[in-house]
Structure formats: C-alpha cells, structure tokens
Amino acid sequence: MATDPPVIVDLSRLDANIHRFHRATAAAGCQVRAHVKAHRTVELAQRQVAAGAAGVAVHTASAAVQLAAAGVRDIVLAWPWPDAWRFPLFAEAATQVPRFALHVDRPEAITGIGAAATARGTEVGVRIDLRHAPAEAVPALAKLAVDTPGIRFDGIAGYSPTATAEEIRDRHDVGRRHARSVVAVAEALRDVGIDCPVVSIGGTPTAPGALGVDGVTEICAGAYATLDGGLAAAAACRPDDVALTVAADATDLLDGCAQPWDPAVASLPAAPPYQGRLVPAHICPLAANVLKRGVEIAVVVNGEQVAAWRPFAAPDRV
C-alpha cells in the first residue's frame, strides 16, 4: 500500500480465525456469542454472525439497538448494570432487538427491568451473572426471574479471567474447572424444577477447556476473531494468526494494551508480511483507543485495502 495505515486488519487471517473457532465450538455442540468489546465495529459483528455466531454480546442498550438496526437479531447485554435509570432503556431495547437478554446479579434489577418491560408490553431475557451474584443467591434469583412478569429466564453466565502467568499457562484446566462449576449450578437449578436453557461460559483463552465439559451451551468470546500478541506469546495461537496490526509510528494506540498476566508488555512485533508493524498484547483496549483517536481500521486482502471500518461509541448516557 502507498501509505502505512495506523491500524490494519488482515481479512484472510480474520476469517480463518473466525471459522476455526466456530468449527471447534460447533464440534462440541455449543454456540458462539461474539463479544464486540474486542473490535467495536458493526462490520465485524455482522461477519461473525454470518459465519455462524448465534448472536453478539454488548455492554450497553444503545449498542444493542445499533447492532439490531444492522441486522443482528440475537443480542445479550453482558454486564449486570444495577442502575434503575437504565431499566427503561433495556425494556426499550427489547422492543427493537428480536431476541434480547441481559445479565443480572440482584433482585432489584429483575423486578425493575420486569416492570419496565411490562409497561412497554415486551419481555426481557435475563441471565444470572455468576461472576457478580453471590452463589447462595442464585436459586432465589432464578426463581424470582421465573415468577416476574416481563422477564424470561434464559439461564446463567460465567466468566473466569486469566489474570496471572500461571493461569494463562494452565488456561485449559482453568476453563475446564470453571465450566464444571457453572454447569453444576445449572444442574442444581434443574434439580429444584427451574429450567436453565443457557449455560454460557466467557473467554477466548479458556474456551478449549470449557468446550470439553458436557452441559456448556454457549461460549461468549471477544478476542477470537482478531487474536492478539499476548495470546500468541502464550502459545494460544500462532503469531501469524493475529489479524490486526498497528503502525510503528502510532504507538499511542497501544497505551494500556498490556495483558494482565504480562503487564510490562503492551505490544509485540508483527509477523510477516507485516514486519515493522506491531500487534497489541491485548486487543480490547486497542479498540477503545482507536475509537478515541477517531481513526479507521484499514481492511486489507493480499496487501490491498478493500474497506475501512470505524469503531462505534454507544454509551447509554452521554
């Protein structure tokens, strides 16, 4: 290319990563939910759904509405916001997203969202967020969700981050142990007569371990499409699988891009044919930095730019 764009995504690598992850997940009898936090672009979310993802995960109602307008039909808001001012926004999103659900971790959220949904003549799915809800509260929360008008109880969701060098090294065992614990919660709910359709496990690094556990129905992952330097350094992928690179003179985009398990390293050298460029150690902060800078992501095939993607901002309150 005549110029060196600040950010490049290699479409061939991107598609190969998506299809590889989707095939592995489907072979285990699970679905993929693509978390947009790793890229924050409508175009890549559409690409993931077209390649077989059941739907996407977002962090705001506004993002859900924006992606629904772009044709995404199944969206989960994967954060248990407790703020009452958000509840009408969630209910409004449910009128625009064909299948909408969100994470909850407390009874006030279930009843508040249910009331807002009922007032709008709609229904909001909820998943109990096991990372934030106290374990002893889960049965009562599930029962409340089942009994609350305007609420559809979808199931449970768990996420076990890899925060240390030891955890990333043992990521398959971490994923397996965590998935077993989440499946046990689902089984306990069924034992007391509560149907638990969805058992969702989060995280790209731990996904291979989670996929070996019977009872997991969904993998919610963000980094699997682009991958990043941290995953390559941990041997979770090959260096030439990483689909996104940053120009050497745009290192401000790499601020805050260190992985928790290796906080001293924010970037690594890119693999051929992108010598001289860098890859982020952690892809998710890069997406936020690209958004702040207002730069485009150059989409490249065989060295030629074929498109440009711009990350979107979708806060629920400005």
Results as ranks from 00 to 15, higher is better:
residue 303 G to C: 14
residue 112 G to Y: 09
residue 81 W to A: 07
residue 47 R to H: 13
residue 205 P to H: 09
residue 179 A to H: 05
residue 140 A to I: 08
residue 195 D to T: 15
residue 114 G to L: 05
residue 249 D to E: 13
residue 72 V to W: 04
residue 73 R to K: 13
residue 136 E to M: 08
residue 185 V to I: 15
residue 278 L to Y: 01
residue 143 K to C: 03
residue 253 L to H: 04
residue 72 V to D: 04
residue 63 A to R: 06
residue 209 G to S: 09
residue 269 P to T: 05
residue 101 A to L: 03
residue 178 H to M: 11
residue 149 P to G: 10
residue 118 T to A: 15
residue 32 V to I: 14
residue 207 A to N: 07
residue 57 A to H: 09
residue 173 D to S: 10
residue 89 L to T: 01
residue 97 V to I: 12
residue 276 G to D: 07
residue 148 T to G: 05
residue 87 F to M: 06
residue 28 A to Y: 02
residue 116 A to S: 12
residue 36 V to N: 04
residue 287 A to C: 09
residue 124 V to L: 03
residue 240 D to R: 03
residue 285 P to D: 10
residue 292 K to L: 15
residue 119 A to F: 12
residue 293 R to G: 09
residue 24 A to T: 04
residue 22 H to M: 10
residue 254 L to N: 04
residue 174 V to R: 08
residue 35 H to K: 00
residue 125 G to H: 07
residue 4 D to F: 00
residue 211 L to S: 01
residue 167 E to K: 02
residue 63 A to S: 15
residue 59 H to W: 10
residue 209 G to L: 07
residue 230 G to D: 10
residue 266 A to Y: 00
residue 305 Q to C: 12
residue 159 Y to P: 00
residue 5 P to D: 14
residue 162 T to P: 00
residue 233 A to Q: 11
residue 253 L to T: 03
residue 269 P to Q: 07
residue 169 R to W: 05
residue 272 P to E: 14
residue 66 Q to A: 15
residue 202 G to W: 10
residue 215 G to K: 10
residue 91 A to E: 04
residue 211 L to R: 15
residue 156 I to E: 04
residue 12 S to R: 08
residue 233 A to W: 01
residue 138 V to S: 08
residue 138 V to N: 05
residue 57 A to I: 06
residue 164 T to G: 03
residue 156 I to R: 01
residue 316 D to N: 15
residue 307 A to M: 06
residue 167 E to V: 00
residue 128 I to E: 08
residue 218 E to L: 12
residue 295 V to F: 12
residue 20 R to D: 14
residue 213 V to T: 05
residue 170 D to L: 03
residue 233 A to L: 05
residue 208 P to M: 10
residue 283 I to F: 03
residue 81 W to G: 08
residue 262 D to I: 00
residue 141 L to A: 04
residue 1 M to K: 12
residue 318 V to T: 14
residue 245 T to N: 09
residue 33 R to P: 00
residue 147 D to K: 00
residue 246 V to E: 05
residue 293 R to C: 13
residue 135 A to M: 11
residue 101 A to V: 05
residue 243 A to K: 03
residue 236 A to T: 02
residue 21 F to K: 00
residue 123 E to S: 13
residue 163 A to Y: 12
residue 272 P to C: 03
residue 205 P to Y: 06
residue 269 P to Y: 00
residue 53 A to G: 07
residue 292 K to V: 15
residue 29 G to N: 11
residue 273 P to E: 13
residue 271 A to C: 02
residue 281 A to D: 12
residue 179 A to D: 09
residue 175 G to Q: 09
residue 113 I to M: 07
residue 138 V to M: 06
residue 208 P to N: 08
residue 113 I to E: 02
residue 236 A to R: 01
residue 207 A to W: 02
residue 153 F to Y: 11
residue 302 N to S: 15
residue 236 A to W: 06
residue 109 A to Q: 15
residue 232 A to L: 02
residue 176 R to S: 12
residue 33 R to V: 13
residue 224 Y to T: 02
residue 274 Y to F: 11
residue 275 Q to T: 13
residue 298 A to W: 01
residue 91 A to P: 06
residue 305 Q to N: 07
residue 129 D to M: 00
residue 276 G to Q: 10
residue 74 D to E: 13
residue 33 R to F: 06
residue 152 R to D: 11
residue 153 F to I: 08
residue 124 V to A: 01
residue 215 G to I: 07
